[in-house]
């Protein structure tokens, strides 16, 4: 009875959502609002927003990957908010999992294959994560997946060696330095041009590594920050073992 009621309710909610969203033009040129007003340059254009990004994005930001241009440049302030949400999540997990008298748990050691292999692959995985977030403006990827890859490298060491522990002080220091870099880059833009996260460095040639102004700088900061936060989450969920 309860299950049938739940299914009927789910179907009703689905129908309501379908009716509500079927009218919204998705990615098309909207006929009722044809003018996109740019508040910075005080211009109006009669393109839709995706068309505007695809047409002017490369000249505005210098990034080849348009998703990166939108995430870091056009919507950079939102990204600062997302990183802050992740920081709050990490703090919450740390405070929930904190125990005063830590009981050391006796666990079985892993075998030689896993230990040697994880020691060998740790450097490769860190290198690959750095590649992902440094090349964020050229290839798919960016700060968030790069940070997740770096955290996975530390997770591998936690799994292979029962006695491994990342120092919490160093993690918080690297995380704070990365967050400060993000905010300081934004504030320099505020001082130079009058709005937050202004792209003040020269753009360079597109498709080269040193291009797109401050975007690679911000993505490196986001990568280090996300990596240390996720490593702190893994560390506090792992507990103390022996």
């Amino acid at each position: 009875m309860k299950k049938a009621l739940a299914i009927v309710l789910a179907i009703l909610i689905f129908i309501v959502f379908a009716l509500a969203f079927v009218k919204i033009p998705f990615g098309e040129k909207m006929s009722t609002y044809p003018h996109y007003y740019n508040p910075i340059t005080n211009q109006t254009s009669n393109m839709s927003l995706p068309q505007h990004y695809l047409t002017y994005g490369k000249n505005d930001t210098g990034a080849t990957n348009m998703v990166t241009a939108i995430v870091v440049d056009y919507r950079g302030f939102d990204t600062l908010g997302e990183v802050t949400v992740l920081f709050l999540a990490s703090t919450g997990v740390g405070s929930l999992m904190y125990v005063e008298n830590k009981v050391k748990k006796k666990v079985r050691r892993s075998n030689a294959v896993v230990e040697t292999g994880s020691k060998l692959l740790f450097g490769f995985i860190i290198l690959f994560g750095a590649y992902i977030f440094i090349h964020g403006h050229l290839t798919p990827g960016g700060g968030f997946p790069g940070g997740a890859v770096i955290a996975s490298a530390f997770l591998l060491l936690y799994l292979a060696y029962p006695k491994f522990h990342a120092k919490h002080e160093k993690l918080s220091v690297s995380e704070s330095i990365a967050g400060l870099t993000f905010v300081i880059v934004g504030l320099i833009g505020l001082i130079i041009a009058g709005y937050f996260l202004y792209n003040f460095l020269p753009f360079g040639l597109p498709t080269y590594l040193f291009s797109a102004g401050v975007i690679p700088l911000i993505y490196v900061a986001i990568g280090v920050k996300v990596g240390s936060e996720l490593t702190a989450i893994v560390d506090s969920m792992m507990g103390v073992r022996e």
Partner: peptide, 19 residues
């Protein structure tokens, strides 16, 4: 990468399922 990682995962899984 596949040559390096696939045998490690398989051997760890075999040992784990024996234990």
């Amino acid at each position: 990468f596949i040559v390096l990682t696939a045998p490690i995962g398989a051997s760890a899984l075999a040992r784990a399922s024996y234990k």
